[in-house]
């Protein structure tokens, strides 16, 4: 019922300043300044700061073996305790964050950028579209972790593989979304209007289609970043991720599980950080998505 909305909005006549719906639609960015969005940003900020400042904050080097400190529980000297080869878990955790940040803020944007490019190209030329769609189908036909395992078989385990997997997983996700989003916007009468006045494809794309297709991609970027933390964790957990002695949150959790009965405290710190990072990204994505719906 259109009437229900119109009834609230001011009608035509009467004095000029009373005529407009002056409630500007706030940009989705404002969602990050309050509530869920702000909470998410703070969580992410804290984790990022910890990771960036690791060299200043960490009491030890991540690989330094401290004599006599074998699987020591949390104490003033070692807040998170030490592991089975006498390393300070807090230091390893702080440096481990950096690995995850690399994955989240580098691999995901790279995958997204390539995906968006492919999506744009394929939504404009039908020939490339058919090929791209089939390739996307193919990649998306593998559950993420199975794809990760298959790729590991190909390139061997390591941080490089994690990078590779994330790019491979995100590429079709963003490719698809760009294509759908662009196609939806292209059907809008205002794009048609630009076409009628003689604007070329590139003009339509640059001035109308792209700016109006960006929002769903932004939401997806936040979602994908949280998925990336998950993928890194899962791969390192399965022993397909970073190689020891390099720490990552996932590999620390794996070590934690191995020592679960002797040192139940082991995984607590890395677990908390993983949850904080994923939760932060998720909250941001939810806040953006909700702002979009409004």
């Amino acid at each position: 019922m259109s009437e229900s909305l119109l009834d609230v909005a001011a009608p035509e006549a009467s004095d000029p300043d009373d005529q407009f719906d002056t409630r500007r639609r706030p940009g989705i960015w404002t969602a990050l300044g309050r509530g869920k969005g702000l909470a998410g940003l703070i969580l992410i900020g804290v984790v990022v700061a910890l990771g960036l400042l690791a060299p200043l904050l960490a009491p030890h080097s991540p690989t330094e073996q401290i004599p006599g400190a074998n699987l020591v529980g949390p104490s003033g000297a070692h807040w998170f305790g030490t592991d089975e080869v006498n390393r300070d878990i807090l230091s390893r955790t702080l440096y481990g964050i950096r690995t995850d940040l690399l994955v989240v803020f580098l691999a995901v944007p790279i995958g997204a950028a390539i995906g968006i490019l492919v999506g744009l190209v394929s939504s404009w030329w039908s020939f490339t579209d058919v090929i791209a769609q089939r390739v996307f189908d193919l990649v998306l036909a593998f559950p993420t972790l199975i794809l990760a395992i298959a790729l590991t078989a190909f390139v061997g385990p390591g941080l490089r593989t994690v990078f590779f997997v994330i790019v491979a997983v995100e590429l079709p996700v963003f490719g698809r979304l760009t294509r759908t989003s662009v196609r939806t916007v292209r059907e809008m009468p205002y794009v048609e209007a630009a076409h009628v006045i003689g604007a070329g494809s590139l003009w339509q794309l640059r001035r109308h289609v792209l700016p109006n297709s960006l929002e769903p991609l932004l939401v997806q970027l936040a979602v994908s970043m949280s998925v990336a933390v998950f993928i890194e964790g899962a791969m390192s957990f399965l022993g397909l991720g970073v190689r020891p002695p390099q720490p990552s949150l996932g590999s620390l959790i794996r070590d934690g599980v191995r020592n679960m009965y002797d040192a139940p405290y082991f995984a607590v710190g890395p677990l908390a950080l993983v949850v904080a990072l994923v939760l932060g990204l998720l909250l941001v994505s939810q806040a953006l998505a909700e702002a979009r719906r409004r």
Partner: peptide, 14 residues
Amino acid sequence: AFVHQDPEASLDPR
């Protein structure tokens, strides 16, 4: 020139 039925949709919101 072309004038569309729905004036809201035919103007780019941005």
